[in-house]
């Protein structure tokens, strides 16, 4: 079963379910999260004396704008997310842990993602202990977790029509280059279809930042997103 971690909160808002501070639950089991964090520890340190490694240290990450350390060399992708104003609140951390590339194209974080929402909640509960600002209890946004909603599996199961995708893609290629050149606007060819679909839904629900993409994604139907994913996914 798939969970749509990244848009949990927004789905709640859209479907009229109350926001996080009314439906707050503990985000997870910090002790179990500490164990799960071992797979992150090769790159990331957290806790007293933590320093940057392959990835930046994670002290104080909750509710901080992304890519804030001047002494760490960030990828172009995460730098762009910072400029677009992305903040490491719970929903973005959750989406990032679920699949880093879906939230931030071109991130250096080589991690397939934690697909189980409980795993993510546990890791985040552990990390949260090292962030000063959200340590106030009871939990509220940005640290509280809203009720979960599944992205209807049929959305991910839609088989896109690449012919339609090719036509729709012409709107994208005014800015994104089909030959995969990067000149300040991200590359969108050769993505795994599922990542593409998830990323476009993340724009549509305004989880990913960027006003142009919010506007472009807002009017794409589920079928149209699938068609684009099928077309671009097949391009080298």
């Amino acid at each position: 079963m798939r969970f749509w971690g990244g848009t949990l909160i927004v789905w709640g808002a859209l479907t009229g379910v109350a926001w996080a501070d009314e439906t707050a639950v503990q985000i997870g089991d910090a002790a179990r999260g500490e164990q799960l964090f071992e797979q992150c520890a090769a790159c990331h340190q957290v806790g007293e004396g933590a320093e940057h490694g392959i990835g930046p240290h994670l002290n104080g990450i909750f509710d901080r704008k992304v890519a804030q350390f001047e002494d760490f060399s960030y990828s172009e992708g995460i730098t762009r997310a910072r400029r677009d104003g992305m903040v490491w609140d719970l929903e973005h951390l959750d989406a990032y842990l679920n699949n880093p590339k879906v939230l931030v194209s071109g991130t250096n974080m080589e991690f397939a993602g934690l697909k189980d929402p409980q795993d993510r909640g546990d890791v985040l509960a552990y990390l949260r202990q090292f962030s000063a600002s959200p340590q106030d209890i009871p939990e509220a946004a940005p640290t509280a977790l809203a009720e979960e909603f599944e992205l209807p599996p049929e959305i991910l199961a839609i088989v896109g029509d690449p012919d339609y995708g090719e036509y729709l893609s012409t709107e994208c290629t005014t800015c994104h280059q089909v030959d995969g050149e990067y000149d300040g606007i991200p590359v969108i060819t050769g993505w795994y279809e599922e990542d593409f679909v998830l990323a476009m839904h993340a724009y549509k629900e305004k989880i990913r930042p960027h006003p142009v993409m919010h506007m472009m994604a807002a009017r794409l139907s589920d079928e149209e997103i699938a068609a684009l994913a099928a077309y671009f996914g097949a391009l080298e």
Binding site: T173, T174, C175, Q177, V178, D179, E181, D183, G184
Partner: peptide, 11 residues
């Protein structure tokens, strides 16, 4: 905008 210029002119 620089990226867009490269995109539209190659389009």
């Amino acid at each position: 905008s620089i990226g867009w210029y490269a995109g539209i002119t190659s389009d």
